[in-house]
Amino acid sequence: MSGNGNAAATAEENSPKMRVIRVGTRKSQLARIQTDSVVATLKASYPGLQFEIIAMSTTGDKILDTALSKIGEKSLFTKELEHALEKNEVDLVVHSLKDLPTVLPPGFTIGAICKRENPHDAVVFHPKFVGKTLETLPEKSVVGTSSLRRAAQLQRKFPHLEFRSIRGNLNTRLRKLDEQQEFSAIILATAGLQRMGWHNRVGQILHPEECMYAVGQGALGVEVRAKDQDILDLVGVLHDPETLLRCIAERAFLRHLEGGCSVPVAVHTAMKDGQLYLTGGVWSLDGSDSIQETMQATIHVPAQHEDGPEDDPQLVGITARNIPRGPQLAAQNLGISLANLLLSKGAKNILDVARQLNDAH
């Protein structure tokens, strides 16, 4: 009898209710805020589980004197976190989706994509230029951005401005803007500013005609071990179906173009009346040469937790077992079709030249 009692006690200790789920994140304040929001949602869904947040620095956090596009290494903000995932030191990792490459290392998958916040870019102005827009900034004003995508589009749109690289986390960039006289304004992701509670610093939100956004911008991705079915089931509740389908289309477009950090590629997606609209573009580094096109596809946005595919093969690095396969494939095909259209119009040449120029500098 006593033996059975011990077995029952052991089973209770090993039951999922007692389990601590370890969540990996970057150390920056924004990353911690984003991770806290994901953990809060998981806690609400699984009140019996405990969650421990483990923060670590990544290569991208450490190399702050070089433009991201020049470092010449993929997975700048993800490699150390993936290493911890691989060694079973954490069970899942919360990322900004735009930091996750469209091809993940073997053994990993994006197990959830959370509801997207505003994906557009924002302009934050130096205190002396508050009330201005990019259009009304004085001639030769210097605007800071760490992104080739932003610089290429904005140089084309605002030729009277000069664009220079600015690195560091959000706090560091804002301090550089406010305390030094080098920059009249800087460009940042609206979602990051909003998550930090800095709505009052948003001086201008850039519309798609001015600057399309990065693939996955404004959404959070939760990376897990691809074979860890328990954790895949656990994080599945975080999937937002519309965000998922938009981001599958965007990531398929980028992957098929073979774009990345070192080339200016941008997108804009919208879901309306059962249609998914995808606009994508590529630019030369100075913005003088560009190709942009829009395509659409009829896609039914499923309700969360309709029964999805059981075999769960990944699409552009994403596993969404609780979302039907048909809409996911339709979104992926839309991204591939748009990429093929741009490639047929000469996108590869623009991107190759951009890559060579970026590598040469």
Score class of each variant (00 low, 15 high):
Glu135Ala: 13
Val38Gly: 01
Leu64Arg: 09
Arg255Leu: 01
His305Lys: 03
Gln181Met: 10
His305Leu: 10
Ser57Val: 13
Lys140Pro: 12
Lys157Gly: 12
Gly281Met: 01
Thr58Gly: 01
Pro159Leu: 10
Pro101Gln: 08
Gln155Ala: 14
His95Lys: 01
Lys157Phe: 10
Tyr46Asn: 14
Val224Ser: 15
Lys98Pro: 03
Leu137Val: 11
Ala44Tyr: 13
Val316Tyr: 01
Ala330Gly: 09
Tyr277Ser: 08
Leu245Glu: 03
Leu244Ala: 04
Thr66Leu: 09
Asn340Arg: 08
Ala122Tyr: 03
Thr109Ser: 09
Leu220Ala: 14
Glu89Val: 11
Met56Glu: 12
Ala189Cys: 10
Ser96Gly: 10
Cys114His: 05
Leu76Asn: 12
Glu139Thr: 08
Glu52Ser: 11
Arg32Gly: 11
Ser147Leu: 01
Leu245Tyr: 14
Val235Thr: 01
Arg26Ala: 04
Thr269Gln: 01
Ile186Ser: 06
Glu162Thr: 05
His199Glu: 10
Asp307Lys: 15
Asp307Gly: 15
Leu174Gln: 06
Ala339Glu: 01
Ala226Asp: 11
Ile318Asn: 06
Ser165Ala: 07
Ser288Asn: 07
Leu170Ala: 07
Ile113Cys: 11
Gly280Arg: 03
Val282Phe: 09
Leu285Met: 12
His239Gly: 01
Gly48Arg: 11
Thr298Ser: 13
Gly216Tyr: 05
Gln296Asn: 12
His160Glu: 12
Gly280Lys: 09
Asn200Phe: 15
Arg22Gly: 08
Leu343Cys: 06
Gly168Asn: 04
Ala339Ile: 01
Lys62Asp: 15
Pro302Leu: 12
Leu254Cys: 01
Gln292Glu: 15
Gln332Leu: 08
Gly48Asn: 15
Leu170Trp: 01
Gly72Asp: 07
Ala31Met: 01
Met271Cys: 06
Val23Asn: 01
Gly144Ile: 01
Ile318Val: 14
Gly144Pro: 01
His268Ser: 04
Asn200Gln: 01
Ser141Lys: 08
Arg355Asp: 15
Gly131Pro: 06
Val316Phe: 13
Ala55Trp: 08
Lys227Phe: 03
Ala44Arg: 13
Tyr46Pro: 01
Val142Cys: 13
Tyr277Leu: 12
Ala360Gln: 01
Asn322Trp: 14
Val267Ser: 05
Glu306Tyr: 05
Arg150Tyr: 01
Gln314Ile: 07
Glu139Asp: 13
Thr109Pro: 01
Arg167Lys: 06
Gly131Val: 12
Leu334Tyr: 05
Ala191Ser: 08
Glu86Tyr: 15
Arg164Met: 12
Glu80Gly: 08
Lys128Asp: 08
Gly197Cys: 14
Gly287Leu: 05
Leu238Pro: 07
Ile63Glu: 01
Leu188Trp: 01
Ile113Gly: 03
Ser37Cys: 11
Gln356Asn: 15
Pro101Met: 05
Ala31Gln: 01
Arg150Gln: 01
Asp36Gly: 13
Gly192His: 01
Gln204Met: 01
